[in-house]
Design a protein around this nucleic acid. Sequence first.
DNA 1: ATGTCGAATAGGATTCGA
Length: 259
Amino acid sequence: MKIATFNINGIKARAEALIDWLREAAPDVVLLQEIKSTDETFPHEIFEGLGYFIETHGQKSFNGVAILSKLPLEDVERGLPGDDSDEQARWIEATVVGKRALRICGLYLPNGNPAPGPKYDYKLAWMERMRARCRELLATEEPLIFGGDYNVIPQDEDAAKPEAWREDALALPESRAAFRRLLNLGLYDAFRAREPGPGQYTFWDYQAGAWARNNGIRIDHMLLSPQAMDLLTGVGIDKEIRGRDKPSDHVPLWVEIDA
DNA sequence: ATGTCGAATAGGATTCGA
């Protein structure tokens, strides 16, 4: 089963590019971030026509996550537990049953800039809530996948110009420590486990010719539970689509799971 | 000196968020 994550930066602006990529890459499950639409305005028909079931957790203008799946999505949960006052749509979970059941969580972790400040406080608090949810799910000892835009550059080798990110919420020591705390629960950065070494990016800013200069960062991640890692057979970043017309600033990251 | 983009509001340029 091929499971991908892709921050599309607006479903309306990206529908055509997304359709092209879905046809080529043929993922079984896709975690989408920044749909920037409500559940009502998401263009369900287009993707149903391509053979996907769809579950969304949207909001107007900003954020919003969704799951597309060729297999039925069961036990869908929307929103990250732990703060009833949080109105930002950044978390969705569902179970997909292939050869065996996988619990799949799609997430759009807060950017956090400018740091310090309230947005950075929200990011760190959100990461702590995510940790609590990960811990709960890990107790099930089932295969789990936490995929999405983490807005965290885990290590210097995950940026072309690490010095440019020193004061940025994506790379500050507290952000990296919070990401490490997720790993320390017993989760694995599936891409990094299979592809050690620098120069592997999932995001290139629209500004300052970042793509042309390969000034990228690796901020989209798939964290897997031990039981999911046992089933991992491949990983990849579909970098090439960043060079197409009207691209997102992110590209898809995928894992292949024997499930 | 963000060399940019998407969405909302408003009915075109501006603001926000990234």
